[in-house]
Design a binder for these strands. Structure first.
Length: 283
DNA sequence: TTCAATGTTTAGAC
DNA sequence: GGTCTAAACATTGA
């Protein structure tokens, strides 16, 4: 799914749009994506929306939590009573922009002032109903968020060195070490740090690790500022696309000229994922 | 027809 | 135990 900036974008919109509303109904069209009992959350009020790694957490008034993972193609769209939702505009034939509910809408929440649609073309995403202990278990294996005080350079070096024989791109995406970085932003961070994604961690000098560390937060923050990256499926809460792809230096830009030096951007497969890099700027 | 797509998990090999 | 790869989940579109 969406990585940290995309989920953070949705989280911020949800906090403005649906906090304070009551869950009056949940229509589950596909139980594959819904883990829990509806009646545990019906009638509860949504008190707060949080993000942990790439997951969304709805904190409810009855002590329960709804945990969401959008995986690769999940969408969360809100259609308020005044119909500000713009999904469907411009590209009526695309399954990604159809006005919900449609055949890829699997869960529908009826709130006080509108409907919240959980769409997922590939059906990898899920929703779980959890109590406080269940939530704790779910997040226990995750590394720190990059904006937590414990995400220090010292922690970063220790965490990276635990995977010394692994390629640096793969380690950056390891959720148990650092929460929230995925395929897009690992490429972008490594471009900014001028490090090839295929380098092994143990070959990296202290100063190279420092440059990577120093670029993590700025890259993610810039992406949040632009509402995340829309490749195909990802949408903001109102259905609009994230704009960061226009600012990406390497992601999805293979065979195009590097924005810095004009060298052709290359693509390689690293641990089963596409890695994009500039063979001149990155060493 | 084949391949790739924002993610995670799991099985098997070394 | 670590780490790699491939495959699985399901679907579309180039």
């Amino acid at each position: 799914m969406p990585e940290l900036p995309e989920v953070e974008t949705i989280k911020r919109s949800l906090n403005k749009a649906i906090v304070g509303q009551t869950i009056n109904d949940i229509e589950v069209r596909d139980y594959k994506l819904f883990r829990g009992k509806r009646h545990d959350v019906l009638g509860a009020k949504i008190e707060e929306i949080e993000r942990r790694a790439k997951m969304l957490i709805w904190k409810l008034s009855n002590g329960k939590y709804l945990l969401f993972h959008l995986k690769m193609t999940g969408q969360m769209l809100y259609d308020s009573e005044d119909h500000k939702l713009i999904a469907g505009g411009g590209h009526p034939d695309s399954v990604y922009l159809k006005k919900p509910p449609h055949e890829f809408t699997h869960i529908i929440f009826t709130l006080d002032k509108g409907h919240l649609y959980f769409n997922d073309l590939r059906k990898f995403g899920w929703i779980k109903i959890l109590d406080e202990n269940g939530l704790k278990d779910e997040v226990a294996k995750l590394g720190p968020e990059v904006d937590w005080p414990e995400f220090t350079f010292k922690y970063f070096v220790t965490a990276m060195n635990r995977k010394a024989k692994t390629k640096v791109k793969t380690v950056l995406m390891e959720q148990s070490l650092i929460a929230g970085i995925g395929n897009i932003y690992s490429d972008e961070i490594l471009f900014k740090a001028k490090i090839l994604p295929t380098r092994l961690v143990r070959e990296l000098s202290q100063s190279e690790l420092r440059v990577i560390f120093d670029n993590i937060k700025p890259v993610l923050e810039l992406a949040i500022k632009h509402g995340g990256t829309s490749l195909k499926d990802y949408r903001q809460l109102d259905g609009s696309q994230g704009d960061y792809l226009h600012f990406a230096n390497v992601y999805h830009r293979n065979d195009q000229p590097c924005k810095v030096c004009k060298t052709t951007i290359e693509r390689a497969v690293v641990n089963g994922r596409s890695a994009h890099f500039c063979p001149n700027c990155q060493k």
